[in-house]
């Protein structure tokens, strides 16, 4: 047992800067994934057969293959096919957004279906358009119910983001590996990386609780 954190000290800022990269990565993927997931879920519950079919096929493919495979295809194989070369960060964000959209669409679909159908009928009977009904009546109630499941997905996304280190994006994980390799000491930087991810997830959990509490206000007052 010979842990030597003193040796790690000069590299700490380098690893910490990875937090910024990881956060950017997660935030962008999360927003895109959420948006994509919402659209897909509306396709799934909608009446247009071809869109429903598309959304189901999409979900099936992205859930049915490994994330890392999807990322390698987007990063290495798509440029080969199209000649469009994208950076590791872009390829990573794209993969995660596309992938989490599939999962999030299922969560939102379940949430929408769980909203009492009387809500839809009341909105219809009042002459409210489909669009306003969905945006103002159904989705807000669905989101409230699925918040825990959604937080789960966001937490998974944050942790899984470490996979982008494979294609060389300089996130926390990659930086920890680089520091480990240059010092020939892996335990200390990896431990630090682990701590960083854990704290990020805790922060996310806390934020989720705050949102949950705010949304719950219509239950009590």
């Amino acid at each position: 047992m010979n842990l030597d954190f003193a040796q790690l000290v000069p590299s700490i800022p380098y690893i910490l800067y990875g937090i910024w990269v990881t956060l950017q990565f997660v935030a962008v993927s999360l927003v895109l994934g959420f948006f994509g997931g919402t659209v897909l879920s509306l396709f799934k519950i909608g009446k247009i057969t071809i869109l429903r079919w598309f959304a189901d096929a999409y979900t099936s493919i992205f859930r049915g293959t490994p994330l890392i495979l999807q990322m390698l295809i987007i990063y290495y194989a798509v440029p080969q096919l199209t000649g469009v070369d994208m950076g590791a960060f872009t390829a990573g964000v794209l993969t995660f957004a596309l992938n989490s959209a599939a999962y999030i669409s299922e969560i939102i679909r379940a949430g929408i279906n769980a909203v009492d159908k009387g809500q839809k009928e009341a909105a219809m009977a009042l002459g409210v358009s489909y669009q306003s009904m969905m945006l103002k009546i159904i989705l807000p109630q669905a989101l409230k119910n699925i918040l825990p499941a959604l937080m789960n997905e966001f937490i998974t996304l944050t942790k899984e983001s470490a996979i982008v280190s494979v294609i060389g994006a300089l996130d926390v994980m990659r930086r920890a590996q680089i520091v480990g390799a240059s010092n020939y000491r892996f335990f200390e930087p990896l431990l630090l990386a682990g701590l960083i991810y854990y704290l990020l997830v805790m922060l996310l959990t806390l934020a989720g609780r705050v949102v949950e509490r705010r949304l719950a206000k219509s239950d009590y007052c």
């Binding site: 009387g118 809500q119 002459g127 009546i137 409230k144 239950d219």
Partner: peptide, 17 residues
């Protein structure tokens, strides 16, 4: 149609939020 015809439901169906 929906402007002319109002409806009240057995289970109220108020918007809870």
């Amino acid at each position: 149609l929906r402007k002319k015809v109002g409806m009240v439901f057995q289970h109220f169906n108020l918007f809870p939020h």
